[in-house]
Each structure stands twice: as structure tokens, then as C-alpha cells.
Amino acid sequence: MMRSLSLLLLVALTVLGGSTEGNERHEQAKREFLSRSKRRWVLNTIELEEEMDVKYPYKITKMHNLRTVGTEYEFEIKGAGVKGVFSINETSGEVYVHRRLDREKTPSYELTFDILDKKTRKTIDRDLSFDVNVKDINDNPPMFTNQFQKSYDVKENTKEGDYLPVPLTVEDIDQEGTINSTVVVTVAKQSPAVPKIGVKKVNDKLHQLVTEGCFDYDVGLNLLK
């Protein structure tokens, strides 16, 4: 006959990735010079950190076009999800972001730029599109995603190293495959204290409780008294 022993466990999640705020938040715009002679555009490709703690609207780059010399012109910006998030000064070509970005909601934006003759309203050059990539920071806590029972039955002859019937499914919605989404699962508190219960990682999302000793019903019962 199987006898069961009750254990009170408090399982803790620890996130490994640190926040990239601080010095890195002053490096919001990563600029690489890019020239396309056919379109005669000169621009910067942009990578912006999410949740930047800056004063908005915040200048992220400046557009240029080599066909504007001697011409009265204006810039236009468009793209899915751009309205209310990005804008361009139609005269200077300065591009602004107007609010904090959330990579988990929108990991990238495609911006399209036109340059128009002010008098004729015709395009001076073909439009140009490029992506604004949102750089991940560690801004989301890891969470258990499976439902836990209040109690589990464990056989008295469960040996050291055996899995216990307690799956722990963990998810962190920060960028997958980075330190920001890497977590460590540990047993923070246990009653009674023996046999000791540990956690073994099965894969990136699944962990399993494992015994680090042998279960003894009579010993456990005395410890609970």
C-alpha cells in the first residue's frame, strides 16, 4: 500500500539577465552610415532600446537626400504603426520617437520616407524604407504558467534522484535565447526539511522537482509533529 507524505514547498524564480539601463540607455541610437547611390538617399539605420528613459519627443536620426540641392522640398514619413510613435521635421529631416517602445508588443517598425517638391507636390526621389529594431531589455519577470495542485502523492520508496510528479513550466517573454529570458528555478523553502527537494531543468521552459534523498513515511511524520 502506498503511503503519502506531505511537504510544504516554496519554489522561487530567479532571472539572470540584468537591466541594460544606465550607461546603455545613452546609446539608444546605433548608427551605421548607409548610402544608396541609385536613390541618392543618405541615412542611418537605427536600433532603439525599449523603455528608454529620455525626454520625449526624442531625436533618433536625421534624413538627407542628395537631390534636394536648390529645391524647395519637404519630408514625409509613413508606415504601419508609425503614427503617434515616430515623426519627421518636414524641413530639417530630423526624425523623432514620441514615446517609450515595448519590444514585446512591437519588435520592429518599418519606416518609409518620401521627399516632395513643395510647389508641384511631386516626389523628388523614390521613397525609401528601412526598419527600426527595438532592442530588448530585462523588463519582464519570469512566471509559472502551469496550474499547481495543492498536494501530490509520493511513494515511500522514492529514491534519491527520482523525479517527483510536480512539473514546473516557466515562461519569460523577454527576447528568447538571450540572458534576459534565462531563469533559474530553486526551492526557496521546504517543510519538513528532509528529504531535501531540488529542481532539475528539463528544457528552457520545463523544470521538474527531484528528490535529493529517500522518502521515509515514519521519519517525515515525526518531523511534522
Rank of each mutant, 00 (worst) to 15 (best):
M2D: 14
L5A: 12
L13G: 02
L13P: 00
V15H: 03
L16P: 01
G17F: 00
G18N: 14
G18F: 04
E21N: 05
G22M: 06
G22C: 05
G22D: 11
N23H: 07
R25E: 08
R25S: 06
R25H: 02
H26Y: 12
Q28F: 13
F33T: 15
L34G: 10
S35W: 04
R36M: 15
W41M: 09
V42L: 13
T45R: 13
E49A: 12
E50D: 07
D53A: 15
V54K: 01
Y56H: 01
Y56D: 06
Y58T: 11
I60R: 07
T61W: 05
T61F: 11
K62E: 06
M63I: 02
H64I: 13
L66M: 05
G70N: 01
T71Y: 00
T71L: 06
E74G: 10
E76I: 03
G79A: 01
A80F: 10
A80W: 07
V82Y: 05
V82G: 13
V82I: 05
K83D: 14
V85H: 00
V85D: 05
I88W: 00
N89D: 01
E90N: 09
V95G: 01
Y96M: 08
Y96V: 00
V97Y: 00
R100I: 03
K105Q: 11
Y109H: 10
E110Y: 07
E110R: 14
F113R: 01
L116I: 00
L116A: 01
K118R: 03
K118F: 01
K119T: 11
R121I: 07
R121K: 11
R121T: 04
R121H: 10
R121Y: 03
K122F: 10
I124N: 07
I124W: 03
D125V: 12
D125Q: 12
R126K: 13
L128H: 03
L128N: 14
S129V: 11
F130M: 15
D131A: 05
V134A: 08
K135L: 15
D136M: 06
I137C: 05
N138D: 14
N138V: 02
D139E: 06
N140Y: 08
N140I: 15
N146T: 05
N146V: 00
Q147W: 13
F148V: 05
F148D: 07
Q149T: 14
K150H: 09
S151Y: 07
D153Y: 15
D153P: 06
K155Q: 14
K155A: 09
N157G: 03
T158A: 10
T158L: 12
K159L: 09
K159I: 07
E160M: 11
D162V: 01
Y163H: 09
Y163D: 06
V166M: 08
P167E: 04
L168F: 02
L168E: 01
T169K: 12
V170S: 01
D174H: 02
E176Q: 13
E176D: 04
I179Q: 05
N180R: 06
S181H: 06
T182C: 10
V183I: 07
V184H: 05
T186C: 13
T186L: 09
A188D: 04
A188P: 04
K189L: 09
S191H: 11
P192Y: 00
V194T: 15
I197K: 09
I197H: 03
D204K: 09
K205E: 12
L206A: 09
V210Y: 13
T211D: 12
E212M: 11
C214R: 11
F215I: 07
F215G: 06
D216Q: 07
D218K: 08
D218I: 10
N222C: 08
N222T: 09
L223H: 14
